[in-house]
Amino acid sequence: MTYPEQPPRQPDESVPPVSESAEVSGVPSATDPATAEHTHPAAAPAAPDDRGALELDYPLGQWQRISPKYAVIEQIGNGVTMLIVAVIAALVWWLNETPWPLIAGGAVLIILIITAILIPRRARSIGYLLREDDLLFRRGIMWQRFVAVPYGRMQLVDINRGPVARAFGLSELKFVTAAVGTNVVIPGLPLEEAERLRDHLVAVAESRRSGL
């Protein structure tokens, strides 16, 4: 099995940390996002500080995306939650005849509706990138999160499938290291792809193994 050509790594360890003060030295740098995207990540330290949003210097197309069906699964889960909340609120209201359960239930429902609106974008934000020596994972729009895990740090890979996800043929891949904080869970992978990815990860981890 093959994975698309990944951005290579340049040995660039000698560069000392460069703070913002470096930009005072008048470097005509890649303010243009189009240029910035194609700059090599290792050459990025001197990048300008103009952008606010957190983004690594890879073309967005390079990220591996998860199945669009994942958003549907999330919507189903969200819908079920909405239904349960509505039923409970109605039940309590029917038994008590005070308006409070309806107000509380309504508040929760509004949050869930906002969630439902955000789900497609949130699902689109999830992506991963198999670099030469590590796995890059991203997710989130409001709260963005990027994780880099060296392959050699893998302790185990889990593939989980919930009932709804199974109906859509999707599964979830979990990459576990010795640190709890790593928390790399790639949802919405077609089972076949999840298994291929798992085998690939295990293979590359084996070739880069070292102490804990």
């Binding site: 660039d12 560069v15 703070s19 990025a44 330290p45 990048a47 300008p48 210097d57 890059l136």
Partner: peptide, 12 residues
């Protein structure tokens, strides 16, 4: 910018 630089340099 600094945190992206830190992230990339350290992960490499």
């Amino acid at each position: 910018a600094d945190s992206v630089a830190l992230f990339e340099r350290v992960s490499a």
